[in-house]
Design a protein around this nucleic acid. Sequence first.
DNA 1: TATTGTTATACTCTATAACTATA
DNA 2: TATAGTTATAGAGTATAACAATA
Lengths: 157, 157
Amino acid sequence: MQSPTGVGFLLSQMGVFVSDGFAERVAALGLTPPQVGVLRLISQTPGLSQQALADRLGILPSRMVGLVDDLEARGLVERSRNPQDRRLYALHPTERGWETLASVSVIAVEFEREVCAPLSEREAGVLTDLLRRLADGHELPVGVHLGYRHLTEGDAG
Amino acid sequence: MQSPTGVGFLLSQMGVFVSDGFAERVAALGLTPPQVGVLRLISQTPGLSQQALADRLGILPSRMVGLVDDLEARGLVERSRNPQDRRLYALHPTERGWETLASVSVIAVEFEREVCAPLSEREAGVLTDLLRRLADGHELPVGVHLGYRHLTEGDAG
DNA sequence: TATTGTTATACTCTATAACTATA
DNA sequence: TATAGTTATAGAGTATAACAATA
C-alpha cells in the first residue's frame, strides 16, 4: 500500500469496494462477475468459439470450459457445433440469457447510481472523464476487465 | 462488469491496475502488499500485539502469524515478549525494517507519479478530492485496504 | 502435424478449527 | 475459564500439462 491518502491507494481501495459490491449484486442472479463478462461478450458477438472468447477476455481456454459449462447449465448459453469445423463450438445466448443480461444491466445502472451517490451529477461526470483518461493513458483495454486475465505472460503492471 | 464505460467499471479496472503495479514494485524489495501493510502499521504504533494488529487490518490472527514470520525472517520486524503478559508479543520494526519502509515510500511516491502521469497536476488534485469523497461517503476505513479483510462476517459491499 | 475443447493435476491464497502456553 | 499465538486442515480459485476428437 502506498501512502494511504494518495490516488493510488484510493483507486485500489475503491476498486475492491466496487468489485465486491457488483459481485454481491449479480450473485442474486446466481452469477459471478467472470460469468457476466463471458455472457456479455457472447451477446455482443454471437457465434464465437470458446477459444476466441478466451483470447479476447484474457482467460485460459481450460478455464473458459467451466465458465461456459455453468452458463449452459443455467440455460443462459447454447453450445452448437460449427458444421464447417466440428472442433469449434458456436456460442449463443438463449432467450433466458438475453433476459438475464437485461437484469444485469438494470443492476449495473442502479449500482452505478449508488457508487456515485456522494457526488453531484456534474462531479460524477468529471470523475468519469478523469478515470477514462487514466485508463486510456495506461492503455487499458476498453471494456475488458484486467481481473480476468492470467498473469503468466509478463503482462502485470 | 457493469457497463464498461461507467464509473464503476473504470474504478474496478484502475483498481486492479494500480494494485498489480504496486505489488510488482514492492516485489523488488521481496515484499507483498499485505506485508507492507503490516510493516507500516507496526511502524505507526510500535509495540502492538499480533492480534491487535490483525484486528486493525481486518486480518485473521492465524494469517497474521505467517505474515509476521516472513517479516521476521527477513529481519524487518522483531518479536519481543511483553513481560507483563507473556502471552503477547510486542512487535517493533528493526533498523532494517525502518530502512525498508523508507524504500517503500520512495517506490510509492514514484508510482503515484506514474499513475497520475496522464493528468495535469491540477486534474490529479481534483481526482484525489473526488475519490476521497467517494471513499468517505461509503465509509471506507481511512488507510486500511479492504483487500486484507476476511469476508466471513458479512461485511462485503 | 496442428488446433479445439477437455480433463486431471498442482499450486496459491486464505478461512476454520483444534491445539499450547500463559493468564 | 479465557486469551494470544500457533499449527493443521480444508476450501476456493486458477494455472499447467496431458489428452481425445477433428482438421
